[in-house]
Design a protein around this nucleic acid. Structure first.
Length: 420
DNA sequence: TCTGGGGTCCTAGGACCC
DNA sequence: TCTGGGGTCCTAGGACCC
């Protein structure tokens, strides 16, 4: 059997975990640049604040209902996630960390005579240990575990845990489950299926398999099997190395100067390298792109990307910043208001397997040592204390984060004070 | 004025070779 | 001169996820 643990309203719950004054108060968290709503507490959902809502649309609701609004604080969420996962790992040998707020637990080989009681213990332990409420669904496949989890969240009387351990329970859960809520069925497929008269997950499992394969590819067929109780999606204990790494952001404000955009691109390139080094890999292709604000029809539009093949795969910030800014120089045009830029590295290979000539190798070893020191310093002192020159200090491109909460759990100066 | 960011997988179609 | 098929590689686009 497979369990899926999912943190409830994760980002909103993180903001609440260290701030008891927010209990019972509606909380929303905004995306990068404070652009739109990406997380809501239950109270905020009940007010009718939608996912993706824009701040100005909900201004009145915020005022009238004393809604607490936060910029996203990924340092805090990342640390809270780690705490949750650490607790989960004490309950199963095989934990697949699926996302920042979700994990699959395998109970294969466990002789648990009461899976539901065990699950309740896990849910209680995480909530008590971290302050983050979680729900858990258990079933024979990942997709069914997802269904069970959402059912546990939706039906209050289940108190956060639902086990699908019989065909009757499977059918009952699927009967009440909208097709568009199934993991793997997005908006396009949901619309296609509804046009075919299929509204629930149960009806989907009664469809013609060949039709599904033909119109929804092998992916749809896999979802079908999973919902029928036959696992088709494997457990991934070791996350595979990423094949593409991307760092791209909208700027806090529109930029017109080359040097400002270059600073941003240098930082994005350096971040890509940090991620590469973390998975012990190097990339041999880098793509740089810039574009103006597509929503501003009144301003001239421009967007372009450039792909650069590196002579030798690298994960050195100094190397990559050099190539990325060279690329930017080639595509940057004066006279536009730039809104976004990004760096994407690909053709990623293990660092150990890099082919190069001896000359270069010596240099690579030297660079590797420098990067190791850089990572250690930044790890100890906080990100971006030590940087490659071009990353700059002006930081005009920085995100807008006007409502950032303190990094309660990762920054000594932000630690909470308890008055006793 | 404001409209996220970072990923994966699959398929179709074109280019090219034998 | 005309014609065919199979295989591989690459890219673009579309679908999905959190």
């Amino acid at each position: 059997m497979i369990g899926l643990v999912d943190c409830n309203n994760f980002y909103a719950s993180c903001e609440r975990a260290f701030n008891p004054a927010l209990r019972n108060r509606p909380v929303v968290v905004l995306s990068n640049n404070d652009g739109c709503v990406i997380a809501r507490s239950n109270e905020a959902k009940e007010l009718g604040i939608a996912m993706g809502a824009l701040p100005f649309e909900i201004e009145k609701l915020i005022e009238q209902n004393n809604v607490a609004v936060f910029s996203s604080n990924y340092t805090l969420y990342g640390d809270m996630s780690h705490r949750v996962m650490t607790i989960l790992q004490t309950y199963s040998q095989d934990v697949e960390i699926y996302s920042i707020d979700e994990a699959f637990l395998s109970f294969d080989g466990y002789n648990l005579y009461d899976l539901e009681a065990y699950s309740r213990e896990i849910v209680g332990k995480v909530t008590k240990g971290t302050g983050i409420p979680v729900s858990m669904g258990i079933a024979s496949s990942k997709t069914l575990a997802k269904v069970a989890n959402k059912t546990a969240k939706k039906r209050k009387e289940l108190k956060g845990v639902y086990v699908i351990d019989s065909d009757e329970k499977r059918i009952e859960a699927l009967r009440n489950f909208a097709i568009g809520d199934v993991w793997g069925i997005g908006r396009q497929y949901a619309e296609l299926l509804v046009r075919q008269g299929v509204k629930t997950a149960l009806e989907f499992t009664q469809m013609n398999k060949e039709w599904i394969q033909k119109h929804m590819t092998v992916v749809g067929r896999r979802t079908y099997d999973e919902l029928c109780g036959h696992p088709r999606i494997d457990f991934e204990l070791m996350p595979p190395a990423k094949q593409v790494i991307c760092n791209a952001r909208s700027f806090g404000s529109m930029l017109t100067e080359y040097t400002q955009v270059e600073e941003a691109v240098a930082n994005y390139a350096a971040r890509c390298c940090e991620k590469l080094r973390k998975q012990n890999c190097c990339a041999s292709v880098v793509m740089v792109f810039v574009h103006t604000n597509q929503h501003r029809k009144d301003l001239p539009q421009y967007g372009k990307n450039i792909v650069i093949n590196l002579p030798v795969a690298t994960n050195s910030s100094m190397e990559l910043v050099k190539y990325a800014t060279k690329g930017l120089r080639a595509i940057f045009k004066e006279g536009f208001h730039y809104k976004k830029a990004g760096v994407i590295v690909s053709d990623i290979v293990p660092a150990a397997s890099i082919q190069s000539n001896m000359f270069y190798e010596l240099d690579a070893i030297k660079q590797g040592k420098i990067m190791k020191v850089l990572d250690e310093l930044n790890g100890a002192m906080g990100r971006n204390k030590v940087i490659v020159g071009r990353q700059g200090f002006e930081r005009k491109w920085k995100l807008r984060q006007e409502k950032l909460s303190p990094c309660y759990s990762t920054r000594l100066s932000d630690i909470i004070t308890v008055k006793a």
